[in-house]
């Protein structure tokens, strides 16, 4: 029988397969993505060029897929590092006493106070743009809300009855962390990670689009979209529409998967 949990699992599986397919295909198509052929300029989509070609005769399908692939790899890496930072700082704030807590909470408030995209651009610009700029920019601007959740979660856990009882029963500190705390935090971290992912991809694309991200030689989605802007008025709709659509589909899919995970983990809707 089909119930919501099975649907969610299918959706997750589909998302994972879609993601891996693009990542792998993109890596293989990278060479084709930069191949120019001036006899085939500005062609609309047809059978040989599914997404058409651009002003340098490059195949837009290859460019889109390898751009997405690059975005996904950057997204994966940044989401992973952000989650790790969130976990470490959140736990440290909750366990290492008032001073540390105040400092970390202040840091969270400070970073959250600055508009997201502005902070991203500032950091990326400061470390010299390019791949490292994007990576550091996104990781440093995306850890806060998850860190806050982890912090309050750990604080609550420390006061929970079963951990207090375990202490009085003489259970070792390391075992308490491993047995009682980690299993509670894992779902939070997982969901945080999955939801960070589309964010990271979108931000990578947007700062690259604005010229503060990856360098123009790389077939990044942001670069593709920025270039296509110049040709939109000439009626070359496929240059922007198809890569843009692919980006939206990828992001939506992961947002959906993340929200499904949230619902599964929320006891108020766990039995739907």
């Amino acid at each position: 029988m089909m119930n919501r949990r099975r649907r969610t699992l299918l959706l997750l599986l589909f998302a994972i397969i879609f993601l891996s397919a693009i990542t792998i295909a993109g890596a293989m198509l990278e060479e084709r993505a930069t191949l120019t052929d001036f006899t085939q300029k500005n062609l609309p989509p047809d059978r040989t060029h599914l997404f058409g070609t651009d002003f340098m005769g490059r195949d837009m399908f290859a460019r889109t897929i390898s751009g997405l692939s690059l975005s996904i790899r950057i997204g994966l890496l940044t989401a992973l590092i952000s989650t790790l930072i969130a976990f470490l700082l959140g736990t440290a704030a909750a366990t290492l006493g008032k001073g540390v807590d105040a400092t970390i909470s202040w840091l969270i408030d400070l970073t959250m106070g600055i508009p997201h995209i502005l902070l991203l651009i500032l950091i990326s610009f400061a470390v010299g743009k390019g791949f490292m700029g994007v990576l550091i920019g996104i990781t440093l601007s995306h850890w806060m809300s998850l860190a806050r959740i982890i912090r309050s979660e750990v604080m609550q856990l420390q006061h929970s009855g079963y951990i207090r009882v375990a202490e009085k029963l003489g259970v070792r500190k390391a075992l308490i962390v491993q047995r009682h705390m980690l299993p509670h935090l894992m779902p939070q971290l997982m969901i945080g990670f999955v939801l960070l992912f589309p964010h990271a991809i979108l931000h990578e694309a947007s700062i690259t689009f604005l010229g503060f991200g990856l360098s123009p030689e790389q077939p990044a989605i942001g670069i593709i979209l920025a270039e296509s802007m110049r040709y939109l008025t000439m009626g070359y709709w496929w240059l922007a529409a198809l890569p843009g659509l692919m980006l939206i589909i990828t992001v939506l899919l992961f947002n959906l998967a993340g929200k499904a995970l949230v619902k599964l983990n929320n006891p108020a809707s766990a039995h739907l």
């Binding site: 929970s160 009855g161 009882v165 047995r179 009682h180 299993p183 509670h184």
Partner: peptide, 8 residues
């Protein structure tokens, strides 16, 4: 129920 870990 407050002193037993629901996940164990």
């Amino acid at each position: 129920e407050t002193v037993l870990n629901p996940r164990l």
